[in-house]
Amino acid sequence: MKRFDIDRRLGPLRLRAWFLVANFLCNALALYGLSRVLVAETGYGILLIGVVGTAGCLAVLSQPSRNATD
């Protein structure tokens, strides 16, 4: 099976950089959801999406580069 190549270029940046941006957005979503949960006891859905998204991005970003010539 072909492994997902996180160091492939996509537009101006490598996929790894895009995932850093996605992780940041998921962090913001999680914190926004958390603030709603703590203040008004709503926003559980947003919190869940943010946390799952963050966990997914961290899983992808923890992948090492495949070889030295990428």
Binding site: D7, R16, S62, A68
Partner: peptide
């Protein structure tokens, strides 16, 4: 994690 910059010294650990 830049293979071109770091070569064999890049992070190879998850």
């Amino acid at each position: 994690n830049d293979g071109k910059l770091m070569g064999a010294a890049r992070s190879r650990s998850r």
